[in-house]
Structures are given as structure tokens and as C-alpha cells.
Design a binder for these strands. Structure first.
Length: 428
RNA sequence: GGAGACGUGGCCGAGAGGCUGAAGGCGCUCCCCUGCUAAGGGAGUAUAGGGUUUGUAGCUCUAUCGAGGGUUCGAAUCCCUCCGUCUCCGCCA
């Protein structure tokens, strides 16, 4: 959520910046609503003040044993006026709230302007795309021929876009997770274990709701007598439960930065992605991910993004996987992000770089929704900045290892960094 | 799942329709005092929003006692729903 004060004071500038990311802000409507809001809110508050002072008067009169009947008569019409004014004021504020909740974050000035992923800017490359002196196979072929990957089994047990992994492949996934968590721990991230089902407040806090409900799996309580909105959602990323740990908190400045890491499964309905990456492990409804989150002082957040991106890169480097870092353009960054670097790993099976991590600085956009603040020694509570990044998407890392480390005979050489986690085995 | 108790500021804890944004204590900040330390005295110490304003200053108004509704001229206090915590019983990885 953007700062409402900024929207009031500098609406045109905000609209311009949003336009670079393809978002049209209806400034005329907002201005009109804000004017209404101001008038109605002032009116309601005046009436509240009136009621409060009169009620106090009644209390005093009563305490002195005076007749309060005439005072009550005076106040009679005030009540309905106040109710109407409050109702009108709340209605406009709710309308404004709804509009504001749907406005994406402002892109940071360093973000290249562009409309699609074609306008993203490559910042750097690491490693050379591997060349093979034989016909390379993609991860589906490689794993199916060994009986490690069974799409039909997944379809039988649940439905499409889920996977069943077996034997060495299942073990290698676990090994990758371990390697990632251990590496991030060394870089000062506290490992946390978090719920996989979260409430609406949490999803609002990180920005998945209200706009992206279609991408989420919702779990209903199925209790017809239950009038509360207790529906829970499967997490689309560990970002949600981890970042929400600081929701409604006022942190000590000395405790910043906070670095946390968790491995969780992630659940995405992948609405609107029919036909894309249908084959194999690239795009699944359920996948494993190791996620890093940082809660930082506002002045530190852009450095923190560089650090965090480096921490994700460290995994790829340990695994010896060639990748490039891409600065996402205004049209391609996510709803809540001010700035995002994608890490794209080289996949020989596709002869292309594919996204394996996304590292974002949200500045105070999430913090404002979350009411996540810190208190400096003297000062007032200030909003923190939040960041997160995959470190890494485990399923896609598995794909990358299989494809990059394949041998002509269909075996897979285990990357050295992974061997300690697989009992020292060198070839699978 | 059954039965009961409870939810108040950074923390502990009073308050049971009106003068309570909330006593008292702890903590914290500033000042005073005392060679140092300890103790003591004084003052201050929630968050958010609106209006005014060049202003994150000041003034002023409003809201907030787990959340949301209701009753009332007036609710921390009464009623309802929900969320959560604790105790006992049952069940359970």
C-alpha cells in the first residue's frame, strides 16, 4: 500500500510513475473521493465532539441531582444525525481503501522502464553455459528413464501439475534443501519453521490479497454455523508466513536487520498459465522453495537487496550452475515490489536461461499494510523495509542439476557441494 | 470435542455505565541532589487518523481497553458473535 498522504499531496507524480508499469490511476475519481472524504469525515467528527461534550454535561448534571430530561430531549436528534454522518464517512473511506489496496508499488528510480520481460536488463552473468559432445536430454527424459519421476502417478493420486519423485531424485531434492538452509544460516539467517496455511490478514499484509485470490488455494472450514471469515489459504510462498511475523510489531532499532530463512512447500493454482511449461517440474501446483526474508532499516534496504541477491547467487555458484542476473523492468516487477532482480539459471534441456530466484525490495509497501515498524532511541515508530528472495526454488534447482550434470549414459554426476548431503555418492 | 476461567498501555495490574486515554507499580527518558556506585527527589513517557499550517513543529478534534456488531444521551464496564489464552476431562502424531 502506498502512503495515503503521498496520494493526496502528489497524485499526478504517483500516477506518472505508475504509468511506467502499465497501471492507470484514475486521478479524477480519487480526487473527487478524497474531497468527499474530507467533508464527510470532518462532519462526522464534529458531531462526535458535540455528542461527547453533551454526554459529559448530562453526566455532570445527573451527578448533581439535576433534572436531565430537557438535556436528553436536546440531544435526541443528534444521535440519528451522527449515525448518518458516520455511515456516509465510513462508506467513502471504504471505497478509497479499496482503490488504494489495488494500487501497486512505485518502481524505484533504478528500475528500467519497459512493458514486458523483453525490456528486462541483464546485469551480469556467472559461469558459461555448459556444452556437451552428445545430444542433451531434458530433465523429464532424464528422470523418467531412470524411474525417478512419475507424472502419471501424480495424476492418479491428485491431478495434473503435481509430481511424484522417487529414490535418488527425491533424496537429491532433500539434499538441495539442506545445502541451501545451511548456506543461508552461515550468512546470518535464522532458520524458522512456519505454518503452511495462513489467514487473510497475512495475505493482505504481503499483498497477495485482495488482487490475486485466483492464484491461491483456499481451504474452507465447511462449518455452516461459522459466521467468521476463518477461511485459510495454502501459502504460495514462505514470504507470507515469514514476513507476517513482524505484522503489528514495533521492533527495536537495534534488532534490525532481521534475517530469516525457511524451507516450505508452496502452492499455486497457476490460474492463467494454461499451456505454459506443462511438461516436467518447471511449473507445478506444489513445489519446494527455500525463502529468505529480511526486515531492515529503511536506509539499508537497497544494500540489503544486493546482499540478499548475492546470498541466492551463492547457492548457484556452489552448485556450479551458470546463471545471469536480470533487473526486471517496470512492466515486469511484481505488484508489491519497488525493485526486483531475477536469477536465471542455464537449462541445457531448453537451451535457455530460466528463472530460479526472484529477489525483491518492497521498501515500505508491505510494511505499511503490515504495520511493521521499528522505534529508534528517541524517535517515533517508523515503517521498516521488507525484502525477500528465493534461495532457491528447489524444484527448478533439481531440474538444473539434472540437466547440467547429465552424462551421455544417462547418469547424473553429483555436484561436489551436494555430495556430503548424499553420503558421498559421486554419480547417480 | 465437553466444562469452566480469562483477554486493559513496553511489562505487571486496578477499574464493574458518566469527570477514565485509562489509578498504582516496574521499565524507559530528561532534570536535581549526593566524592564514585547504590539510594533519593521532580517532570515526562501509547498508536493512528482528520482539521489548521510552507511544515514530520504547535494547536485542536476524532478513534482505539483481543476483533466485529448491538443496547444507551453516554460503554473498558451491559448483550451477541468470533478470535485467542489458561485449567480440568476426552481424543490424538
Amino acid at each position: 500500500m502506498l502512503d495515503a498522504k503521498l496520494l493526496r499531496s502528489d497524485l499526478e507524480t504517483v500516477a506518472q510513475k505508475l504509468k511506467t508499469r502499465g497501471f492507470e490511476l484514475d486521478t479524477a475519481k480519487i480526487q473527487a473521493l478524497e474531497e468527499q472524504r474530507k467533508a464527510l469525515q470532518t462532519r462526522a467528527q464534529e458531531l462526535q465532539a458535540e455528542r461527547n461534550s453533551r454526554s459529559k454535561g448530562i453526566g455532570k448534571a445527573k451527578a448533581q441531582g439535576e433534572d436531565i430530561a430537557p438535556l436528553l430531549a436536546e440531544v435526541e436528534s443528534l444521535k440519528t444525525q451522527l449515525e448518518e454522518a458516520e455511515k456516509a464517512s465510513e462508506a467513502v473511506q471504504a471505497e478509497i481503501e479499496t482503490i488504494y489496496a489495488g494500487i501497486p508499488n512505485l518502481p524505484h528510480e533504478s528500475v528500467p522502464v519497459g512493458l514486458t520481460e523483453d525490456d528486462n536488463v541483464e546485469i551480469r552473468k556467472w559461469g558459461e553455459p555448459k556444452t556437451f559432445d552428445f545430444e542433451v536430454k531434458d530433465h523429464v527424459e532424464l528422470s523418467e528413464q531412470r524411474g525417478w519421476y512419475d507424472n502419471d502417478a501424480a495424476v492418479k493420486v491428485t491431478s495434473g501439475r503435481f509430481s511424484v519423485l522417487k529414490g535418488p531424485m527425491a533424496k537429491m531434492q532433500r539434499a538441495l534443501i539442506q545445502l541451501m538452509l545451511d548456506t543461508h544460516s552461515e550468512n546470518g539467517y535464522e532458520e524458522v519453521y512456519v505454518p503452511y496455511l495462513v489467514n487473510q490478514d497475512s495475505l493482505r499484509g504481503t499483498g497477495q490479497l485482495p488482487k490475486f485470490e485466483a492464484d491461491l488455494y483456499k481451504i474452507s472450514k465447511n462449518d455452516e454455523h461459522d459466521t467468521s471469515d476463518r477461511d485459510l489459504y495454502l501459502i504460495p510462498t514462505a514470504e507470507v508466513p515469514i514476513t507476517n511475523l513482524v505484522r503489528d510489531e514495533i521492533l527495536n532499532e537495534a534488532d534490525l536487520p532481521i534475517r530469516m530463512v525457511a524451507h516450505t512447500p508452496c502452492f499455486r493454482s497457476e490460474a492463467g498459465s494454461y499451456g505454459r511449461d506443462v511438461r516436467g517440474l518447471i511449473r507445478q501446483h506444489q513445489f519446494e522453495k527455500v525463502e529468505m526474508v529480511q526486515i531492515v532499516h529503511p536506509e539499508q534496504s537497497h544494500q540489503a537487496l544486493e546482499d540478499l541477491t548475492g546470498h541466492a547467487e551463492a547457492i548457484l555458484q556452489k552448485l556450479g550452475l551458470a546463471y545471469r542476473v536480470v533487473n526486471l523492468c517496470t512492466g515486469d516487477i511484481g505488484f508489491s515490489a519497488a525493485r526486483t532482480y531475477d536469477l536465471e539459471v542455464w537449462l541445457p534441456g531448453q537451451a535457455a536461461y530460466r528463472e530460479i530466484s526472484s529477489c525483491s525490495n518492497f521498501e515500505d509497501f508491505q510494511a505499511r499494510r503490515l504495520k511493521a515498524r521499528y522505534r529508534s532511541k528517541e524517535g517515533k515508530p517508523q515503517l521498516v523495509h521488507t525484502l525477500n528472495g528465493s534461495g532457491l526454488a528447489v524444484g527448478r534447482t533439481l531440474v538444473a542439476v539434472l540437466e547440467n550434470y547429465q552424462n551421455e549414459d544417462g547418469t547424473i554426476t553429483v555436484p561436489e557441494a551436494l555430495r556430503p548431503y548424499l553420503g558421498g555418492v559421486e554419480v547417480l
